[in-house]
């Protein structure tokens, strides 16, 4: 074979060799074909484990029960019992160490998520007592008049 063919060929072969060697080190041992076969199960197995390690942020209402029993006991006797504390107060994460306090959102928007009247039959929305945000005491926070943990209408009229 002539030199001008032979030399570039060696260079190319060396390059391929290098890439393949690099591949040995770069591709992790657990990368390959797994349970669902080549089409759906070609992956790095360690990644499944990685995903399980994401921190849990929403702890659920039972977590709050011990330290805020007044709020818990109060809300549990009302129709608002179905709403998780963290829906209104944000994720607990590691509260009370981090963050020390949870948010107190007094905005009307928070309550209007459910109580803005939408006349939608074939949807649960129609069953919730709705108000017209533009007519029902506009510009005043709902919690000035209603207790979110005890939203009773008694004595309001």
């Amino acid at each position: 074979m002539k030199n001008h063919v032979y030399r570039p060929l060696i260079v190319v072969l060396c390059l391929i060799g290098l890439i393949l060697i690099a591949r040995i080190f770069y591709v992790p041992k657990d990368f390959g074909v797994h349970e669902r076969g080549y089409m759906y199960g070609w992956y790095r197995e360690g990644n499944t484990e990685d995903w399980t390690k994401v921190a849990v942020k929403y702890q659920g209402e039972d977590y709050c029960k011990g330290c805020h029993p007044d709020k818990y006991d109060s809300i549990m006797k009302t129709p608002h019992a179905i709403i998780q504390c963290e829906n209104c107060h944000g994720p607990a994460i590691e509260h009370p160490s981090n963050p020390q306090k949870l948010a107190i959102d007094k905005s009307r928007a928070q309550c209007l998520r459910c109580h803005a009247s939408l006349p939608y039959p074939t949807s649960g929305r129609a069953k919730i007592r709705g108000i017209d945000p533009e007519k029902h005491n506009p510009d005043i926070e709902c919690v000035m008049c209603h207790n979110p943990h005890k939203p009773s209408l008694e004595g309001l009229k």
């Binding site: 459910c114 074939t122 949807s123 649960g124 929305r125 919730i128």
Partner: peptide, 9 residues
């Protein structure tokens, strides 16, 4: 979908 009220929580 009957139960959803669109609260977005």
């Amino acid at each position: 979908t009957y139960k959803c009220v669109g609260c977005g929580f």
